[in-house]
Design a binder for these strands. Structure first.
Lengths: 336, 336
DNA sequence: CTGTTAGCGCTTTCAA
DNA sequence: TTGAAAGCGCTAACAG
């Protein structure tokens, strides 16, 4: 049932090499042989074994994209663009998820390397640098995206999260809010730190004092946002606005606030980050900071592909690290 | 930099075979050698080349999951569960998307086969059966999920979409609606046909006459739902409810209706299918028909894995086709 | 224009 | 308990 080059060679009465070349339309093979081989190949349903080829060439034309999860539309949209762009560049992609668990990240990186992917696009947990250390030690092509470390030099593509935090908070302040709750994510994550800086900067510019108690650190897992909103707003408080780390946190916050009898934005205004609505129209459009996701992913993958090519090249002694940051922009929706 | 079994053999002063066996903890290798090999492997950062192994064994422990797209949360949630369950079963997964384009589906299937995946989980476009014909011809292990054909025998796992259409429509009728617009997807798709049947059945039971003009056929691409809602509700009409093919269509419908000044559910009630809210809490909870997604995907992958195992086994002459259907249940939200 | 040879890194007989 | 040899399917280097 399975046809190999060898079979074709036998049938066409030529060598395996000639068959290989004929199928690649090499000029060094006569038109006739080329036609004959190709027609036989089609007739017999020949399916090239790309893995066998990659054993020789050293390239699998496969990438691994490692993300926290595929539940959050923010990440699945990244996955969408990664799949589409990588495919257009001739790569297949393994998606692997970490659920923000160190061990999973490590396993994913190892598995990717064991399966000989040409490169890894990693959105790291930032709980440790174990998996990154491994890739460095192995001199394995990779690009960090979305999150970077202060003390690790690597090719990276991130979003201007500080600007995001700043723009969202500033917008709330301009709308007249001075008591702004910040539902942030955990501070070991790059984006949380950056948005935190942006939030503080906007407060400062607006002449609003910063209170550590106005910032809460929660996960983006289902239910966490609802829970903290329930907790805070069932007690006495004077918040009139919330800046949410990301849309899924904002979604839950709004859902819970509504359930509790608060109107958004009349009672509580909400601004956040991700602008998922620009790609998945939802019943309510959030005021949210977005960016060009297609461009972001394209940039990351281009960097990775470059990296893969350069890994083979000679002059990789003193490499210059690529460190890109994507611009953001605020879209005003119905929640402020 | 890269360490192979050969390198380890040289270092440990034994054969490649012994190294291979030692790393697999084979009983046929002395405890000492095993320990020595394993410690050297760790020390030198040995990364097994799984592809090389699979050339011999014939198995890559890799699956391909082919979906329409990763934008629609419905599909990305399937991707999430597929990735998680496949990983737990020791498989890596290639995700490929078709955007409901025949050629893309064909390319995806071919690429998957060329990369020697052990099996393919396919959510087919249903525009043609080209890619399925190829897999059949090649006797390649696959499972159809989400959508099946009347005239094609294959292992499959689908959702009880007819029941979904029935439950949603029936609920609207029980809420007192008799003029129900149905924003369906295209009728070449299994789910559209099935939900259509369910819709009609519920109407009939409710003693409501069926009008062909009450059913619109649209894509789930961004903007299509908004457009048709705009068209219909800017003209004279007597609809008091909409049954949407899926949540993303419903989301857009609600967004557009609100923009046009209609209140949901006061002016127009909305019911749909997918129940995305059960996994991604959104600002508004739709009345929607859902099902156990984790179980659904698990079932599909288990069937596929079984298929892979049986493809190798002898008695595959007269195979019984596995055809499963997952139960659905209506969740009442805030839109009816 | 075509073929021979070698080998990618592993596993799997078969032998010792 | 260990090893030698063969080979998975392909491509690349070299030869003619």
């Amino acid at each position: 049932m399975k046809v190999s080059l060898k079979d074709l060679a036998q049938i066409c009465g030529c060598s395996v090499t000639s068959v290989s070349r004929a199928l690649k339309d090499s000029d060094t093979i006569s038109k006739e042989l080329r036609e004959k081989v190709k027609s036989k190949a089609k007739e017999l349903g020949y399916v090239p074994n790309l893995l066998a080829g990659s054993m020789r060439t050293g390239y699998t034309n496969t990438l691994a994209v490692i993300l926290p999860d595929l539940r959050n539309p923010y990440f699945s949209l990244l996955a969408k663009y990664a799949e589409e762009y990588a495919t257009s560049k001739g790569y297949s992609v393994f998606f692997m998820t970490t659920n923000e668990i160190s061990e999973h990240e490590h396993d994913a990186v190892m598995k990717a390397m064991q399966k000989n992917v040409d490169g890894i696009l990693l959105l790291p947990n930032q709980l440790d640098t174990q998996s990154i250390d491994i890739m460095n030690k192995m001199n394995f092509p990779y690009v960090l995206f979305g999150r970077i470390f202060d003390d690790i030099k690597a090719d990276s593509v991130v979003v201007n999260d500080e600007m995001g935090g700043y723009l969202a908070t500033k917008h709330l302040i301009e709308k007249g809010h001075s008591r702004i709750l910040f539902l942030n994510s955990f501070m070991h994550i790059f984006s949380s730190q950056a948005r935190f800086r942006g939030y503080k900067k906007a407060l400062k510019e607006g002449g609003i004092p910063f209170n550590e108690e106005d910032v809460k650190y929660i996960s983006t897992k289902i239910g966490d946002s609802e829970k903290i909103v329930e907790e805070i707003f069932s007690k006495e408080n004077d918040y009139t606005a919330i800046f949410c780390y990301c849309d899924v946190i904002a979604f839950e916050a709004i859902f819970r606030l509504n359930k509790m009898g608060y109107a958004v934005p009349q009672d509580i205004a909400i601004a956040s980050t991700d602008d998922i609505h620009s790609e998945i129209v939802l019943p309510i459009q959030l005021t949210s900071v977005g960016f060009d996701r297609a461009e972001y992913v394209k940039c990351a993958i281009d960097t990775l592909i470059n990296n893969i090519k350069h890994a083979a090249s000679p002059s990789k002694k003193e490499k210059e690290y690529v460190q890109k940051m994507i611009d953001v922009k605020l879209t005003i929706g119905q929640t402020t």
